[in-house]
Design a binder for these strands. Structure first.
Lengths: 138, 138
DNA sequence: CTGTTTCGATTGCAAAATGCAAGTTAACAA
DNA sequence: TTGTTAACTTGCATTTTGCAATCGAAACAG
């Protein structure tokens, strides 16, 4: 009885709980579009995330099913974060947000070729970016 | 010299500064998709925004060019918030986020007809939602 | 006019989240 | 064994949030 639930949550609200903070989308961007996989790489983003915040976000992202934390077999100190399909399916969200920012902020820019492709063949671009991310981590 | 700037900001970073918090997207959702226009209406959202937070967010949204604050001529106490084109152009972002949430959270639901139309004719749906919002506030 | 209500907030304060610097632990490298 | 690296954790000051109460102006009721 208490296990069954009706679907009554707003989609925007759920998304905000998962990535509606200052840092989660930055980390996802770096993992998905910049090819970063290690903690130390994620630390170097231009925005300057604090180390404790990065750690807490990675934990939450793992709990939310966005990343899987794995050890490198050849060096057990090293950890890498693998993206789930749930995370990879946020590529369209990142691209749509980017399209908007590039239009409305004069100080913002993205790789022109990326934006051109997004306009001309969005589905193919999305698939390519997702596939590139999948290959990187296998 | 100090006035000219190169375009070197990441699009995700700009977007996060504008709506990367717990409440701005909720307010935008209510203004764009639920047809709310008044402070008292925005107070009634299911998520329960605090009155001081709503006030501060509306101020920031005005500063960021998302809304325009106007008085009702026939009742000068009343204020309504008009969406700018910059805000209306976030409709695709809201829809893309909703698509994602509905897929990955079992407790989340959106009007099925909306999601069906988003899949079958996304551009037309976006245009319709934006036009509906424009008409409402004129 | 003169209370009373409505609307859109603001204020004060406790609690939570964030940011910064320093410290910790295990694994590998020499 | 000694030092170094990677991935965090801890302590603490600052900032942001959330909650309840209050406010001022405009409208409304008698």
């Amino acid at each position: 009885m208490s296990e069954s639930q009706i679907k009554n949550r707003c989609p925007i609200d759920y998304a905000l709980e998962v990535f509606g903070d200052r840092w989660t989308l930055i980390v996802l961007r770096d993992l998905m579009l910049s090819g970063k996989r290690h903690y130390r790489e994620l630390m170097t983003s231009k925005e300057g995330i604090a180390t404790n915040i990065l750690a807490s976000r990675l934990k939450k992202m793992e709990a939310d099913g966005l990343v899987i934390r794995k050890h490198k077999p050849e060096d057990k100190r090293q950890v890498f974060y693998e993206l789930t399909e749930k995370a990879l399916d946020l590529v369209p969200v990142l691209l749509e947000i980017s399209r908007w920012s590039v239009i409305y902020d004069k100080h913002t820019a993205a790789p022109p070729e990326l934006m051109r492709r997004y306009q001309e063949e969005p589905r193919q671009l999305i698939a390519d970016l997702q596939q590139a991310a999948r290959i990187r981590q296998s």
